[in-house]
Write a protein that binds this DNA or RNA. Structure first.
Lengths: 338, 338
DNA sequence: ACAGTGAGTCAAAACGTTTTGACTGCCGTA
DNA sequence: TACGGCAGTCAAAACGTTTTGACTCACTGT
């Protein structure tokens, strides 16, 4: 029922020229008399001709499409904090790609043989794990890649945009100390991405520099709120409860605030809370929670720009692009004046 | 420097077979002796061979990629209410596509000649305008399309998933009346998508059915908050101020709540507010605002499913898939008992 | 002994472009 | 008059797959 696709051949026939002439008329590769060009344009319009992108990119070796791979697959993991991160990053990258008239494609799991293979000129890999398998695969296939946040095991890749954590983490910890916190605990995530690795390092360095003991515990990103509550409850009741907690994800931060309220621990008077990710949870918790915003919009914008430059054979940059996270100080760490 | 791409030819040569044999070994089109298959697999692995997706889809006529077009281009428009809608929808569609091992591509403006053309087996068009230009173009090119929300001028397209507004809008208006609203005003958007069109119809029908006067005003989605405030301020101060306002976008709803507070109009006692979209604005406004949630996650899931079925040559459905919006009743419309 | 069958392989023909070399007139210049 | 060059066009060769028809064996059943 549905007729054959219209090809350049149909257009050529209708305009009574050769197919190469049609091609030239569109791409401007060679001069074409305006009369002929008119006929071709008309024929193409009448037929509803659109060049076949696969044929074109097979021939030219370019698809005009940029791939996007998020590590971990935030959304599939499913907590709402992750969903917000995922959505914000994906949305920003999509917006930026669209603005640049580039197709953006979400790449199905690249080493799943059942997954569709997609043509892409390059690929953005966001938040790789340490020694990330998928990143390895992409590099192995010689696909031009730009990373958002570096793979901690491969910090040397110059085509990257990364976040500069130390100053911001230091600022946060200094702030807590100014607010008279004396025992700041870090509840870090368990995944091996740069966010966890670097913020932990920064915390350690700060402790050392200030001569205070390091107090780190891990809270897996995979935990349900119920499971996390089981772990956090005792901590809040313990005699050596810290007077400030910096927790990786904002939904767990909000959870801690809630548990504290339940257990009668006053925030921020007896316990300050801050998170290393910002989301609706931290913004709307009671009290609102101080948080570091990863600035996904800027990351996305720079990543797309870098990718396009790279595809366009720009020279390898000396340095990765560096973005600064944004610190939002909120009520959860502002002790009332006394 | 970077060597030629590895092709099926290289693999064939290395395994000392013909290229068709290699192809069959991978696709299983014909039986291949296990010895040969082994040699081929090994050769492919050693060479790091990956089939060229463009060549493959040129030949087969399938790319394994689904396109996504959002109308309007929410994110580019830029209000934060839109950004959330955009992000949520894009995120959900991406998640679902990934789960189904399909590539999902954001299609650059389809009638911009400068924009990259992309190979797609089908295309999801979300929230088309009335008589949408882009939808026309896609149909004209005979690309299989699934719409999220119908084009009001083309309600007959069966490959669609749509929202069932009337029951929910009716429920909302009934609720307002139960809360003793006697003068309910609708502040509708100006765009011609189904959301605006259908909710307006539902409101009209409800007014008629209940014998109350229709009171509709328009508030363009494009307005800045400053501009919107200029329009809303006088309305709240006017002697014939309604005692309930249903406003299309939730950010404007939150704005109204703020203006009401400034002008000393008590919510919900003197003025009830509800919105026809849910977002962080409505959830976290003071008081929290009753809102209709468009249930983007379900829309996305069904749309992807429908698209895949359509590509797979499933029979044309009798009816569009119908999703129900979710009504969140919140403080802004709950009058305290008296 | 022989047709029929199935496994295993190959060669060649698409798929729809872009690009290149070559051809034809024609104009301007030496 | 001869000649280089340019505008305008065409034919043919890629690009890297999948698919199909055909071929060769070996094996089966009669």
């Amino acid at each position: 029922m549905s007729r054959r696709r219209i090809t350049i051949r149909d257009v050529a026939e209708r305009a009574d020229v050769s197919i190469s002439t049609v091609s030239h008329a569109f791409s401007g590769g060679r001069p074409i008399s305006s009369a002929t060009k008119d006929r071709i344009t008309r024929a193409a319009a009448e037929l509803g001709y659109e060049p076949n992108p696969s044929a074109r990119s097979l021939r030219t070796g370019r698809s005009g499409i940029v791939g996007l791979i998020l590590r971990p697959r935030f959304a599939l993991a499913g907590t709402s904090d992750r969903a917000e991160t995922f959505n914000r990053l994906v949305g920003s990258v999509a917006t930026e790609a669209l603005r640049r008239k580039t197709g953006l494609i979400h790449v199905p799991d690249i080493d799943d043989p059942r997954a569709a293979k997609v043509p892409m000129d390059g690929c953005i890999v966001a938040h790789p794990y340490s020694g990330d398998r998928v990143l390895t695969e992409v590099l192995h296939r010689r696909i031009p890649v730009v990373t958002v946040e570096e793979d901690p095991q491969r910090p040397e890749l110059p085509w990257a945009v990364r976040l500069d954590y130390p100053p911001v983490v230091t600022r946060l910890l200094d702030h807590l100390r100014e607010q008279h916190a004396s025992d700041v605990m870090l509840l870090t995530g368990t995944e091996s991405n740069a966010w966890n690795v670097r913020t932990r390092e920064s915390y350690r360095a700060w402790c050392e520099h200030n001569g205070v003991p390091v107090r780190i515990d891990e809270l897996s990103e995979g935990l349900t709120h119920g499971e996390a509550a089981q772990l956090i409850g005792p901590l809040l009741a313990a005699p050596d409860r810290p007077d400030a907690i910096v927790v990786a994800t904002s939904d767990f931060a909000a959870l801690i605030a809630k548990l504290a309220a339940t257990q009668g621990v006053r925030v921020p008077e007896e316990l300050m809370i801050a998170s290393l990710t910002d989301s609706e949870h931290s913004r709307t918790a009671e009290p609102a929670i101080t948080a570091m915003d990863l600035n996904h919009e800027s990351l996305a914008k720079e990543a797309v720009e870098l990718m396009l430059a790279r595809i366009d054979d720009a020279a390898e940059p000396e340095q990765p692009v560096v973005i600064s996270p944004v610190l939002h100080l909120r009520a959860s760490t502002q002790r009332p004046r006394h």
